[in-house]
């Protein structure tokens, strides 16, 4: 899988979440995702960026345009150095939340993506990667 383009954005405030959404939208249009798929990946990005901010205490979003053979896609990586998640399985369940949200962030973002990876260590931080293919 080749990386065609690579940007890193900070996630420190709720304004940054808006910027991440706009940037993801721009990339999604660029690689020709359908309107529904654009909306899905932007929404997933919004959920995960908010998690980074609210639970991870801020971090970064990496936006990559990737190419695998003939198909293009968007890969997003959300990284924080927050408290981490003790039980990833549990965190992925619908409706589970440790905070004030609806508990749909992680599980919802997973449903909105084609690929979903999560790594988390308590005390060290969390990294979530999603991919949406054209």
């Amino acid at each position: 899988m080749a990386v065609v383009r690579d940007d890193v954005m900070p996630v420190r405030s709720s304004d940054d979440i808006v910027r991440v959404r706009q940037e993801v939208r721009a990339r999604a249009i660029e690689i020709g995702l359908s309107l529904v798929d654009q909306t899905k990946i932007v929404t997933a990005a919004s959920e995960l960026a908010r998690n980074t901010l609210d639970y991870g205490g801020g971090g970064t979003t990496r936006l990559e345009v990737v190419q695998d053979g003939g198909r293009r896609g968007i890969r997003l990586t959300f990284e924080d150095k927050g408290p981490g998640i003790a039980d990833v399985e549990l965190a992925l369940k619908d409706g589970y939340t440790s905070g004030k949200g609806l508990g749909l962030g992680l599980s919802g973002a997973r449903r909105l993506s084609n690929e979903f990876f999560i790594e988390s260590k308590p005390g060290e931080g969390t990294r979530v990667t999603i991919v949406r293919w054209k």
């Binding site: 529904v36 654009q38 919802g108 449903r111």
Partner: peptide, 13 residues
């Protein structure tokens, strides 16, 4: 919008 509605349902809301 339709795309928003589809996504919201997929999200679980």
């Amino acid at each position: 919008r339709p795309a928003v509605a589809i996504t919201l349902v997929e999200l679980g809301l």
